[in-house]
Write a protein that binds this DNA or RNA. Structure first.
Lengths: 235, 235
DNA sequence: ATTATAAAGTGTATTAAATACACTATTAAA
DNA sequence: TTTAATAGTGTATTTAATACACTTTATAAT
């Protein structure tokens, strides 16, 4: 037996929703599309799946192409398969989302694609059904971050509690009491307090913390509940 | 512009993990594969995505083909895209999982495929990477059911609290105190107590309940936490 | 040198939710 | 009418979540 000869073959793409945090706002990285159709319009970074690579490999390749980063948090989000989503030819696209330390990505590479960071509240019109992909990714990151410590992936390896709290407040668009927040976060055993301080954010300076990687991997799947009253979260 | 002429096209399939509950054990529906390769071996119900249909349409078609059911709970799970997963020709497959009332499906149709229900703990060897698909589906259904009231989709429209509790205990492989369980479940406002009883399960009989559909849709996304200590749940 | 300023850091009392736990009610069958 | 099997219900205890305000520290301004 050679092939499933009677079946139709389709184009398969992957698109990446790349999240970054600048200390204040959660953002996504978009490029100016370099080819037709929709050339010059804002788009997610994506590409066709090659015969030699798995979907995970394809998404990692595309992420690296734009950011220079490897080994970062990258998770399959959803596969979008409406027949009309690409006007040129039917293309099914598997969307992935990445969480990166915004300071680590190589601006040089992004310049090649005329890439720009956009705050989630000011995402421009995107091509095809990518608006829906971004909305799905926003919901997923909120959902998952309410239960699992994924947001650390957006921070540098050393960070302060005020920075972490600002990140959570930004992602969930809420304010949290800092006494309760630090109690909850420290109670997880996920953080190691370091001896030195970040003096950039304030006169007094805030102690740096880093992840206890052993506990991080062990507790990653636990429901951590950093967010007060998550009952109203939408999936 | 006509086509993305230089790109390789791939086969795209969907596979369905169909869950049912017989009052005692959570089960999945498998078929004996009717064509090569792996003809005659146990397999998920699946099929190739046709040019005219979306992925959601394809999965609904395949579910109906095997069970006769439409409009039931069907959710995209994950897309499996390793290059070697199908030995005949590269095929990417998007897995969906369905939750059905086991009593509603048409046994006749299933007979055409030599289908059988298997308890989750006694799933036979499956073709390709379908073992992994089933494991992923088991994790997902547990995860989601710990937070959202999806398990009602497995029950008939009228059910008793003991039946519901047995279902939760079966899915999570645990035992729950019935006083605390009924308190939690009834506190959600999701259930309407009916006047008559199911006399099949006991001499005394247990009151039937049905879903309050308005509250069900309204609270579907809320974190309900029916399961004691979900902190140890694995994603 | 002194003072003002701005953010970091910390503790306790209150409230709400989760848990542990055991007896009574009902009805069919013996 | 007695037995057996499951349904149904309440309370006390423990644990977790929440609300809430002052002190500390270091720089910058006077």
């Amino acid at each position: 037996m050679q092939k499933y000869s009677k079946q139709t073959r389709l184009l398969l793409a992957v698109d990446c929703i790349i999240f970054g945090f600048d200390g204040d706002t959660l953002k996504i990285l978009l490029i100016k599309r370099g080819f037709q159709p929709e050339k010059g319009n804002w788009s997610l970074m994506g590409g066709f799946v090659q015969p030699s690579e798995s979907l995970d490999q394809a998404s990692n390749r595309i992420l690296k192409q734009l950011t220079g980063l490897e080994g970062v948090y990258l998770e399959q989000l959803h596969t979008f398969g409406n027949t009309q989503r690409d006007p040129i030819e039917r293309t099914v696209s598997t969307a992935y989302f990445a969480l990166i330390d915004i300071h680590k990505y190589e601006t040089q590479l992004s310049n090649d694609y005329h890439a720009e960071w956009f705050p989630l509240k000011r995402v421009p019109k995107l091509i095809f059904d990518q608006q829906e992909m971004v909305e799905t990714a926003k919901r997923r990151i909120r959902y998952k971050a309410a239960l699992h410590p994924i947001l650390f992936e957006l921070l540098p390896s050393r960070f302060t509690l005020p920075q972490l709290q600002t990140l959570y407040e930004s992602v969930f668009n809420t304010t949290i009491d800092k006494r309760n927040f630090s109690k909850r976060v420290l109670a997880t055993g996920l953080l190691i307090k370091l001896a030195d301080k970040d003096k950039a954010g304030s006169k007094r300076g805030a102690y740096y913390y880093q992840l206890n990687m052993k506990n991080y991997y062990a507790k990653f799947q636990a429901f951590l509940n950093f967010i007060p009253n998550p009952d109203t979260l939408l999936l």
